[in-house]
Measured scan of single mutants.
Amino acid sequence: SEFQINEQVLASWSDSRFYPAKVTAVNKDGTYTVKFYDGVVQTVKHIHVKA
Rank of each mutant, 00 (worst) to 15 (best):
S12K: 15
I5N: 04
E2R: 15
Q4D: 07
G39T: 03
E2L: 14
Y32C: 03
T43N: 10
F36P: 00
D29K: 01
V49F: 07
H46M: 13
Y32S: 00
W13S: 08
Y19A: 07
E7V: 07
S16I: 07
K50T: 09
K28L: 11
T31H: 01
Q42A: 15
I47C: 13
T31Y: 05
A51E: 08
P20G: 05
Y32A: 01
T24V: 15
H46I: 11
D29H: 03
N27L: 06
Y37A: 12
V41K: 05
S12A: 14
G39M: 05
S14H: 12
V49R: 12
T24A: 05
S12E: 14
T33I: 08
E2D: 10
H48I: 09
Y37I: 10
F36R: 09
T24F: 07
V26T: 03
S14A: 11
V41M: 08
A11V: 15
W13F: 12
Q42C: 15
V23S: 00
D38L: 08
K35F: 07
Q8H: 14
N27V: 01
K50Y: 11
E2P: 12
G39D: 05
F3K: 01
D38W: 15
A11S: 03
K22W: 13
D15S: 06
Y19F: 10
A25N: 07
V44E: 01
P20K: 06
A51Q: 11
N27F: 08
V26K: 08
E7T: 09
F3V: 04
V40F: 11
H46G: 15
W13L: 10
A21F: 07
G39V: 04
V34A: 00
V41Q: 06
E7W: 08
T33V: 12
R17D: 09
Y19R: 07
A21Y: 05
V9L: 02
F36G: 01
V41R: 02
K35D: 04
D38Y: 09
H46W: 13
N27W: 08
V41C: 07
F3R: 01
H48R: 11
F3P: 03
A25Y: 05
N27I: 03
V49E: 04
N27P: 00
S16E: 11
A25Q: 09
V41Y: 09
F36S: 01
Q8C: 15
K45Y: 11
V41I: 13
D15A: 03
A25E: 06
S1G: 12
K35W: 09
T24K: 06
G39F: 06
D29V: 01
R17E: 10
D15V: 02
K35Q: 15
S16H: 12
V9Q: 02
D38Q: 06
A51D: 07
V9W: 04
V41D: 05
Q42S: 11
H48Q: 14
G30E: 03
F18S: 02
T24W: 04
H48S: 07
Q4S: 12
W13M: 11
T31N: 02
A51T: 09
T33K: 05
K50A: 07
V23T: 02
V23L: 05
Q4E: 08
S16Y: 07
K50D: 07
K50I: 14
H48M: 14
N27H: 11
K50P: 06
V9M: 03
Q4M: 10
L10G: 01
P20R: 07
Y37E: 13
G30F: 06
H46E: 11
F36H: 00
Y32F: 08
Y37L: 10
Q42W: 13
Q4K: 13
T43M: 08
K45D: 12
Q8R: 09
H46V: 11
D15Q: 04
F36Q: 00
